[in-house]
C-alpha cells in the first residue's frame, strides 16, 4: 500500500488548494478529505481519474454562501491511500467507503454533488441512507445498467485503453487517462494545461498509483453478466422512486456522456428535477465552469431554504 501526501502537489498549484488535509479510516483505508465552512453539508464527489482538486473553484463560493463543504478523495485517487491490487476496488466497496465517512462525520441534510463515478457511488449512498440526504446535484454521470454510452461499447479507444495488460501499460506506465485523457475532455485545454493538469498528474505519480484509472472502466457494465449490472439495476429502480430535490447540470460539449442523451434520461428518471442546466464543458465540466456551477448549486439550495 502507498500513501500520497499533499506535499507532492507542485508549488504553483498549492495556492489553489489551501485546505487543511483531514484523514479518516474507512473500511481499513486512509481517506483524505477536506471539511470547510459551517452550515448544511454539501459533499462534492469526483470520479476517474480526478480528486477533490476538480472542485477547487466551487469550494469557496459554497462556503461563502453558508455551507459546510466536504470533499473526499476516493480511495485510490488524490491524496487518499492507493491500494495496489485490483481486488481492492469494487463499486459496492467504494460506496461503503463514502458511507463510512458520512457516518463518521455524522452528517445529515447532505446535498450530494455527483460527477462521473461520484454518481454511481454517491447516488447508491443516497438511496441506501436517505435519512442523511437532503438533495442531489447530478453532472456527467449515469445510474442505469446498460451501457452508459455508445462510446463505452467501442474498442477504439475505450475498450482498448483498459484491455488486459493494455490498461496497466497505457493508463499505468504512460498515464494516458490522468494526463492526456483529462486534457482531451476539457474545453479550454490551454488553461487546463497551465493551471490544473499538474495537480492531477502529481496525485498519481507512478504506475502503481494509477491502478484505479484502468480498474474503474472495467466496472462499467457492457452486458447483463457484468459484475455491477445488478447494482446499477437496483440504483436505477431506487432513483426512479426517490423524491430528493435534484439539480441536473451538464456540459454542452460533453462527448462521453452527451447532454442530450444523459441529462434527458436523468430528467425522465427524476421528472421533478431542476434542469438540465447546460454550461460550457466537456466531461470535466468543473474545469471550464466551476464558478458557474457553484452559482447554480447556491441558487438551488437557496430555493430549498425558502430564500
Amino acid at each position: 500500500m502507498t500513501v500520497q501526501s499533499e506535499s507532492a502537489l507542485p508549488a504553483t498549484l498549492r495556492a489553489q488548494w489551501p485546505y487543511v488535509p483531514r484523514y479518516a479510516n474507512v473500511n481499513g483505508w486512509r481517506m483524505h478529505y477536506i471539511d470547510e465552512g459551517e452550515g448544511d453539508p454539501v459533499v462534492l464527489l469526483h470520479g476517474n481519474p480526478t480528486w477533490g482538486f476538480l472542485y477547487r473553484n466551487m469550494i469557496g463560493p459554497l462556503v461563502n454562501s453558508g455551507r459546510r463543504v466536504i470533499v473526499p478523495d476516493m480511495i485510490g485517487f488524490g491524496l487518499s491511500e492507493k491500494p495496489t491490487r485490483e481486488a481492492a476496488h469494487s463499486l459496492d466497496g467504494h460506496t461503503a467507503n463514502l458511507t463510512a465517512l458520512m457516518r463518521q462525520l455524522d452528517l445529515t441534510r447532505i446535498t450530494l454533488v455527483c460527477h462521473d463515478w461520484g454518481g454511481p457511488t454517491g447516488l447508491s449512498f443516497a438511496m441506501s441512507n436517505p435519512a442523511r440526504v437532503r438533495a442531489l446535484t447530478i453532472m456527467s454521470t449515469w445510474a442505469w445498467p446498460l451501457p452508459p454510452a455508445e462510446f463505452h461499447t467501442r474498442i477504439f479507444p475505450w475498450r482498448m485503453m483498459h484491455a488486459p495488460l493494455v490498461g496497466p501499460y497505457l493508463l499505468g506506465n504512460h498515464r494516458a487517462l490522468a494526463g492526456r485523457g483529462v486534457y482531451l475532455s476539457v474545453v479550454n485545454r490551454e488553461q487546463f494545461a497551465h493551471a490544473a493538469q499538474g495537480a492531477y498528474e502529481a496525485a498519481l505519480p507512478d504506475p502503481a498509483t494509477r491502478l484505479l484509472t484502468w480498474v474503474w472502466p472495467r466496472w462499467i457494465p457492457l452486458d447483463e453478466n457484468a459484475r455491477a449490472y445488478e447494482r446499477f439495476r437496483w440504483l436505477e429502480q431506487e432513483l426512479s422512486r426517490s423524491k430528493f430535490p435534484t439539480l441536473i447540470i451538464w456540459g454542452r460539449e460533453d462527448e462521453v456522456f452527451d447532454a442530450t442523451t444523459f441529462s434527458n434520461r436523468f430528467k425522465q428518471l427524476l421528472p421533478h428535477a431542476e434542469g438540465p442546466h447546460l454550461v460550457t464543458g466537456r466531461h470535466f465540466l468543473q474545469e471550464d465552469s466551476g464558478p458557474e456551477i457553484a452559482g447554480l448549486v447556491r441558487s438551488f439550495l437557496k430555493r430549498l431554504d425558502g430564500g
Binding site: 479507444p157 485503453m161 497505457l170 504512460h174 494526463g179
Partner: peptide, 11 residues
C-alpha cells in the same frame, strides 16, 4: 486500433 489508441494518448 491498438496503434490508434497509442497515438491518441501519445505513447
Amino acid at each position: 486500433d491498438f496503434d490508434r489508441t497509442g497515438r491518441l494518448y501519445r505513447v
